[in-house]
Design a protein around this nucleic acid. Structure first.
Ligand SMILES: [Mn+2]
Ligand SMILES: [Mn+2]
Ligand SMILES: [Zn+2]
Ligand SMILES: [Zn+2]
Lengths: 174, 174
DNA sequence: TGCTTATTTGCAAATAGTGCGAACTACATA
DNA sequence: TATGTAGTTCGCACTATTTGCAAATAAGCA
C-alpha cells in the first residue's frame, strides 16, 4: 500500500472525499504487517476515534482493495485478513497464535504440478502452516528452517517426510 | 477416505452406530472428487433420503474428519469444502466455476522460501488459482499446462509468465 | 421384545459480512 | 464565509455458515 499521502491523492483524483475516518484507516494500514481483520482494525481505529463504525472500516477496506492498495486473504476460514503488502508474496501461519507472516518464495516456477487438463494458472498462493519455535532458540539444530533476517534462504522441509502412505481408494489402486 | 465398508467397520469399533444416514453419506463421499460443501452434500443426500437433516450432514462430516477419513478446506472464504482425498495433495480452483481440482506436486521441498526466524513448517498448502480453458479443447496448443491424465508433469507457469500463447512445448513427453 | 444410549433433528444462537437508506459532511462554488 | 450537493458514515436489518442444545428417535445388545 502506498503512503497515506499518496493514497489520499489517489482518492481525490477519483472524486472520493478525504474524511477523518479514511485518513485514520490509511495510517493504520500503512506498513501494517499484522494482517488484521476488519474487526481488529476497527478496534485499533476505535482507540483513536471512538464512535467510528465497523461498517465504515469494511467500506474503506473494500475501497482500498478495489484500488489495488491492499489484498484480501482468506486463510483459515475465519475472518478475512487484510494485507497492505501487494507484492507477490506468500504466508506462514502460526497454528498457535494465528499470526500471519509474509514469506517470499523465489522459485515458484520450478514447481512440478500435475494440473488438470486445460487449466490456466493465473496465480499461485502458498501457505506454510506451522508454528514459531517457542524457546530452544539457540539449540543449533532449531535453525533448520531459515532465519528471515540475514536474507538467507532455505529449502523448505515440510511434513513431506513419510506420512503413513495412506493408500485408500483414489489413485489407480484399491 | 476408505471404502464405505471399511469406514463402517471403524465406526463400529469405536462404538458408533451404523445409521442409514451415515451409510448414505459414506457412499456419497467415497471417491467423491467434487470437494462438496456441507450444503451440496446435503442436497445430494436429500435426493436419496428426503428428510435427512443438514445438521446430520455437518455432524457426520465432523466425525469423518476427526477420524482422519476426510479433510477440510477453506479455500475462498465461502463454505468449507470436504475432501475424501487425504493423501498429500494440493488444489487448483477455477475462478469461473469455483470447481476444485486435486493437484499433485512432487517437489515442494525444493521451494526456496524466506520464512520468519524460528518458524517450524509442519505442512504446506498450495492453491493454483486460474481457470479451465473453455473452448479450444483440441487446438493442439491448448495443452500448454499439463494433461493430468497421462501422468505428465509440467513446470508451473503462473502469472509470472508473459502471455506468449505460442509456446507449443507440450511435445516434450512421450 | 425391551432397554439403554447413541443419533437425528429442529431451532436458536454465533460469526462474519453485506444491503439499504437516513443523517451527515467534505469541499467546490458563489 | 455561506450554501448546495453529492459522497460518506452509520445503524440496523438481513444473509450465509456453522455450532449449541435438548427432545424425540432408533441402533444394537440382552
Ligand atoms: Mn467458513
Ligand atoms: Mn469469511
Ligand atoms: Zn502478507
Ligand atoms: Zn482435494
Amino acid at each position: 500500500m502506498h503512503s497515506p499521502d499518496v493514497v489520499a491523492t489517489k482518492y481525490k483524483e477519483q472524486g472520493r472525499r478525504l474524511t477523518p475516518q479514511r485518513k485514520l484507516l490509511f495510517n493504520l494500514m500503512h506498513n501494517n504487517e499484522s494482517h488484521p481483520t476488519a474487526e481488529g482494525l476497527f478496534e485499533e481505529a476505535s482507540k483513536r476515534m471512538p464512535g467510528i463504525s465497523l461498517r465504515t472500516v469494511y467500506q474503506t477496506l473494500e475501497e482500498l482493495s478495489e484500488m489495488g492498495e491492499i489484498q484480501l486473504m482468506h486463510c483459515d476460514g475465519g475472518a478475512v485478513r487484510f494485507d497492505p503488502n501487494v507484492d507477490e508474496h506468500h504466508h506462514a501461519v502460526c497454528a498457535e497464535t494465528g499470526e500471519l507472516f509474509d514469506v517470499y518464495v523465489d522459485n515458484i516456477d520450478s514447481l512440478r504440478a500435475q494440473l488438470p487438463a486445460g487449466f490456466e494458472v493465473q496465480n499461485v498462493s502458498i501457505v506454510f502452516h506451522g508454528r514459531v519455535a517457542k524457546s530452544a532458540p539457540r539449540t543449533a539444530r532449531s535453525a533448520r528452517i531459515t532465519t528471515k533476517s540475514p536474507a538467507r534462504q532455505q529449502t523448505v522441509r515440510a511434513k513431506s517426510a513419510k506420512r503413513t502412505p495412506r493408500r485408500t481408494s483414489r489413485g489407480s489402486n484399491t
